[in-house]
């Protein structure tokens, strides 16, 4: 039995130590928000936080997160309110199909925790998650709004 700490809660799972964290989350713990896109660390759909670091869970063996704090999209919002990134994502209507977005949001939240006011170039460089639908422009807009400290509520529907 492996002991995990996910979204502040203890979990025990009975899996091989080399099982990628992604599949423990999805198939053992039914935390389905974290997505499989490539399985090789290319796309970022599986991004979670491990001790605050944006981490690609598809190439992270579960043994590497023992004793660490894992946060998934399900644990991002507080009890009463969404995380600012989630609020900005709604206000700017960022998702299209939405499949890449949990990973995108987790990457954004990790970046902002380290650097609350990233420049446009820093955002472009740090956010290398892939999106097939092409939400690029809105990811940038939502991030720019967050980086400028602007309350995100305005968004796309100001009129």
């Amino acid at each position: 039995m492996l002991k995990l700490n996910i979204n502040g809660r203890p979990h025990q799972v009975d899996v091989e130590a080399d099982t990628p964290l992604l599949w423990v989350l999805r198939d053992q713990l039914q935390l389905l928000g974290t997505k499989y896109g490539c399985g090789v660390g290319e796309c970022g759909a599986c991004t979670v936080h491990v001790d605050g670091e944006a981490t690609r869970s598809c190439i992270t063996p579960v043994s590497a997160v023992l004793g660490k704090k894992v946060r998934t999209i399900e644990g991002l919002a507080g009890k009463k309110a969404l995380h600012p990134v989630q609020r900005a994502w709604i206000a700017h209507e960022v998702p299209q199909c939405g499949y890449c977005q949990p990973g995108m949001i987790m990457a954004a939240a990790a970046l902002l925790e380290k650097n609350p006011k990233p420049s446009a170039a820093q955002i472009d460089a740090a956010m290398d998650n892939l999106c097939r639908c092409g939400t690029h422009q809105r990811v940038r807009e939502a991030m720019a709004a967050l980086a400028s400290g602007e309350p995100s509520g305005g968004g796309r529907h100001g009129s």
């Binding site: 198939d27 039914q30 389905l32 928000g33 974290t34 997505k35 499989y36 998934t72 999209i73 399900e74 991002l76 919002a77 969404l82 989630q86 994502w89 709604i90 209507e93 960022v94 998702p95 939405g98 499949y99 977005q101 949990p102 949001i105 796309r156 529907h157 009129s159």
Partner: peptide, 28 residues
């Protein structure tokens, strides 16, 4: 411009996609 219905669930990571099907006793 009306807010799309499907966006809040997608931003919360709710299990809305085909790959998120979860049923009792399901195998893969």
């Amino acid at each position: 411009s009306q807010h799309r219905f499907d966006i809040p669930d997608k931003v919360l990571g709710k299990p809305v996609f085909g790959v998120d099907a979860a049923l009792p006793g399901m195998v893969h």
